[in-house]
Design a protein around this nucleic acid. Structure first.
Length: 422
DNA sequence: TCTGGGGTCCTTACCCTG
DNA sequence: TCTGCAGGGTAAGGACCC
């Protein structure tokens, strides 16, 4: 039996199928990472499968069989293993997910140029310019579902609505492997019975705050004066949630917004209290961030350091430079200076991170650095290293101080792409 | 139960400047 | 010269998303 034959009927929640004006589509892959793994290992279909790893890791994705046992994404792996001891655990293969994602996004781009990716596995599409060529929004949604399944062998769900956030709620509601249209005149009826936590931007904390006000459903939220919400949640969030509760969301579909920050962070397998080891990790993180910025053509002005302690409390420190940079050495020196200024002695640290903010076009950095000749030479050397790594792999060239680090206590966890059991 | 890694956005506080 | 105020930039923290 072909998989398309088992596809269940779509748009079946009693909302009708009047898709006039519903030109925003939200397309979301079903259990994306797990589905990609099942392409290579069809014998696992029908079994609980969890993608995740590391003894301090979390669940990245789980098949619906694992979800039925209480497993969900972002859950600590230790807990997931207890809930589903018979589940097959697969180490993530980010390279494979990236490839499938590019394939899916390229399908979207044949539908409309107005594609706004949200992550590897979901995107908004504005199909208002494609109606004459491809048919109604619902027909376009079905076309996308069929093509994704035929060309990538994974299923997806599609929400069709007049606004982005209602389209997203619709795809979530109809998951997995479905399509749901929310007609313009039924948006309020669709929204108001939902719990407040269903709204985009209402997480655990905000839900608690709203519960303290006695607000549990979107209807409760809609009928609360906006001033009350602003007092409780702040000006911007209060206004935003009140608008969403009435179905107002004017945000357009924006293809390719420029990045605002680029960062890297690492949770250690065991907590670290040795400053020299932390310094080495900061160097590696700065190296990753610098290389990514140079590759993407960005330079950043603000360096942010993040430190998470053994008790999970977290602090950040940031420093704004005189001029934007993409030079690893400068990023590292700044991050290290901020770390040393914390004056931590034998404090157990769980995670460190380095992030660059205030990104701008990096093409002028080389010229600006001519003012400081040594930095200019340094940047040239880093660009040369980038080229060598592009040709021979990331580990071909690395700072001498990282050889011991990567060879011994803290192996790099994501560059190797080792896949267990495949 | 014990919590990843990549991000974005918002709020608050503080400092500086006009 | 001093004071008050507004606005911008920076820093830090937190919530949220996938």
């Amino acid at each position: 039996m072909s998989r398309s034959q088992v596809r269940r009927p779509t748009g079946t929640t009693g909302l009708g199928s009047d898709d006039a004006g519903c030109t925003i589509l939200h397309v979301d892959m079903d259990a994306f990472y797990a589905s990609v793994e099942l392409r290579h290992r069809p014998e696992l279909r029908g079994h609980p499968v969890i993608v995740g790893g590391g003894h301090r890791g979390v669940v990245l994705s789980a098949t619906y069989e694992a979800r039925a046992m209480g497993v969900h994404s972002a859950m600590p792996m230790s807990r997931a293993r207890r809930l589903a001891p018979q589940a097959i655990v697969i180490e993530p293969d980010h390279q494979a997910y990236g490839e499938v994602s590019r394939g899916v996004m390229s399908i979207f781009e044949t539908i409309t140029p107005l594609v706004e990716p949200l992550s590897l596995d979901e995107a908004f599409l504005d199909v208002s310019g494609s109606l004459r060529r491809l048919g109604t929004p619902k027909a376009i949604g079905e076309l996308i579902r069929a093509r994704v399944e035929d060309e990538q062998q994974i299923t997806c769900s599609v929400g069709v609505a007049t606004t982005k956030f209602v389209a997203k709620l619709a795809s979530t509601r109809i998951k997995p492997d479905g399509l749901l249209v929310v007609p313009a005149d039924q948006v309020i009826a669709f929204l108001h019975p939902l719990p407040v936590g269903a709204l985009w931007g209402v997480g655990e904390r905000t839900e608690e705050q709203l519960a303290r006000l006695g607000l549990r459903t979107v209807a409760d939220l809609a009928h609360t004066p906006v001033q009350t919400l602003q007092r409780a949640l702040g000006q911007a969030i209060g206004t935003h949630l009140h608008d969403l509760a009435w179905g107002r969301d004017p945000r357009p579909v924006v293809p390719q917004a420029p990045d605002k920050s680029i960062g890297a962070e690492e949770t250690f397998d065991t907590d670290v209290d040795d400053a020299a080891i932390i310094h080495a990790h900061l160097l590696r993180l700065a190296d990753q961030v610098g290389a990514r910025m140079r590759r993407a053509g960005y330079a950043g002005r603000t360096v942010q350091l993040k430190v998470r302690f053994a008790d999970f409390s977290t602090l950040t420190r940031s420093r704004t430079l005189i001029a934007p940079t993409d030079v690893t050495k400068e990023i590292y020196d700044t991050a290290r200076a901020m770390f040393d200024a914390l004056g931590l002695e034998r404090v157990r640290i769980r995670l460190v991170g380095v992030r660059m903010e205030g990104l701008a076009d990096g093409s002028g950095v080389a010229q600006q650095l001519a003012l400081g000749q040594s930095e200019h030479v340094r940047r040239d050397a880093e660009v040369a290293v980038d080229a060598l790594r592009a040709r021979f792999g990331r580990s071909a060239v690395r700072p001498a101080r990282l050889v011991d680090l990567e060879g011994a206590d803290q192996p790099p966890r994501r560059d190797g792409q080792a896949r267990s059991g495949s």
